[in-house]
Simulated assay, not measured.
Amino acid sequence: MQKTIAVLGSALFFAVAPSVLAGLIPWSITLWQFRPPFFDLQATRAVGMLLIAAGLPGLIDSFGRFALQGLGTPAPIAPPQNLVVTGLYRYVRNPIYVAVVAIILGQGILFGDGRLLIYGGLLWLAFHGFVVAYEEPVLAESFGAQYEDFRANVPRWIPRLTPWRAARSRDAS
């Protein structure tokens, strides 16, 4: 039952937060209309598609891990009971934020719209402020040494090249 509630809560939060931030707001800015490509190079559009294609599955996977492994949601009102350190979390501490920004920047490059690049940069700054001021202190308090080990080994924004593996707990069998 707890997993079911976590999955439903994560799905609801997904429909609200990333869908609005990386869907509704970019649409309201661009109306999905193409402008001339950056640097007058059609190839830049492929870069945008790659960023979107990389961000979307990572976003979905990370939300799923919060529900199925963390037994909670990414929303602060229903946080995970377990620290999630698998999947993309082995490479970067904040894959949801990275994925959302990648999707938005990808849309900006795809549509040739600098306004989305500015929006993506401002959103990343807001994410950074939230992570530093609220999220990291709360996670440190909630998960103690386990989070400190994770934080010491996995970068906040720029992914590692190799996956980090948490040391097995003495209690694990």
Score class of each variant (00 low, 15 high):
Gln2Arg: 14
Gln2Ile: 14
Lys3His: 14
Thr4Ala: 15
Thr4Val: 15
Thr4Trp: 13
Ile5Met: 10
Ile5Gln: 12
Ile5Lys: 15
Ala6Phe: 06
Val7Tyr: 06
Ser10Arg: 06
Ser10Ala: 14
Leu12Cys: 08
Phe13Met: 05
Ala15Tyr: 01
Val16Gln: 05
Val16Asp: 00
Ala17Gly: 05
Ala17Trp: 06
Ser19Ile: 06
Ser19Tyr: 01
Ser19Gln: 05
Val20Ile: 13
Leu21Phe: 11
Leu24Thr: 10
Pro26Trp: 03
Pro26His: 01
Trp27Met: 04
Ile29Asn: 02
Ile29Asp: 05
Thr30Leu: 03
Phe34Gly: 04
Arg35Cys: 03
Arg35Glu: 11
Pro36Thr: 11
Phe38Lys: 07
Asp40Ile: 00
Asp40Thr: 09
Ala43Ser: 11
Thr44Tyr: 03
Thr44Met: 14
Arg45Trp: 04
Leu50Asn: 00
Leu50Val: 14
Leu51Pro: 01
Ile52Gly: 02
Ala53Leu: 13
Gly55Lys: 01
Gly55Leu: 01
Pro57Leu: 01
Asp61Thr: 12
Asp61Val: 13
Asp61Cys: 07
Ser62Ile: 08
Phe63Lys: 10
Phe63Pro: 07
Arg65Lys: 13
Arg65Thr: 07
Arg65Ala: 12
Gln69Ser: 09
Gln69Trp: 03
Gly70Trp: 08
Gly70Val: 10
Gly70Ser: 11
Gly70Glu: 09
Leu71Ala: 01
Leu71Tyr: 05
Gly72Gln: 03
Pro74Leu: 03
Pro74Ala: 04
Pro76Leu: 04
Pro76Asp: 05
Pro79Ala: 06
Pro80Thr: 12
Pro80Cys: 07
Gln81Arg: 14
Gln81Gly: 04
Gln81Met: 07
Asn82Leu: 00
Asn82Thr: 08
Asn82Ala: 09
Leu83Glu: 00
Val84Ala: 01
Val85Asn: 00
Thr86Ser: 12
Gly87Glu: 04
Leu88Lys: 08
Leu88Thr: 07
Leu88Ser: 10
Tyr89Met: 02
Tyr91Lys: 06
Val92Ala: 01
Arg93Asp: 08
Asn94Cys: 08
Pro95Gly: 11
Pro95Ala: 06
Ala99Gly: 00
Ala99Trp: 03
Ala99Tyr: 04
Val100Glu: 12
Val100Arg: 00
Ile104Asp: 10
Ile104Leu: 06
Gly106His: 09
Gly106Ile: 11
Gln107Arg: 03
Ile109Val: 13
Ile109Phe: 05
Ile109Trp: 01
Gly112Trp: 08
Gly112Gln: 11
Asp113Leu: 06
Gly114Leu: 10
Arg115Pro: 00
Leu117Ile: 15
Gly120Leu: 08
Gly120Glu: 05
Gly120Cys: 07
Gly120Tyr: 07
Trp124Asn: 08
Leu125Lys: 08
Leu125Val: 10
Ala126Ser: 09
Phe127Pro: 04
Phe127Arg: 03
Phe127Val: 11
His128Val: 04
His128Lys: 09
Gly129Ser: 10
Val131Ile: 15
Tyr134Phe: 14
Pro137Asn: 10
Val138Met: 13
Val138Pro: 00
Leu139Tyr: 01
Leu139Val: 10
Glu141Tyr: 11
Gln146Trp: 05
Tyr147His: 15
Glu148Gly: 09
Asp149Phe: 03
Phe150His: 09
Arg151Leu: 12
Pro155His: 11
Arg156Asn: 13
Arg156Trp: 06
Arg160Val: 08
Arg160Phe: 01
Leu161Arg: 15
Trp164Asn: 02
Arg168Pro: 10
Arg168Val: 15
Ser169Val: 02
Ser169Gly: 00
Arg170Trp: 13
Asp171Val: 14
Asp171Pro: 02
Ala172His: 12
Ser173Tyr: 12
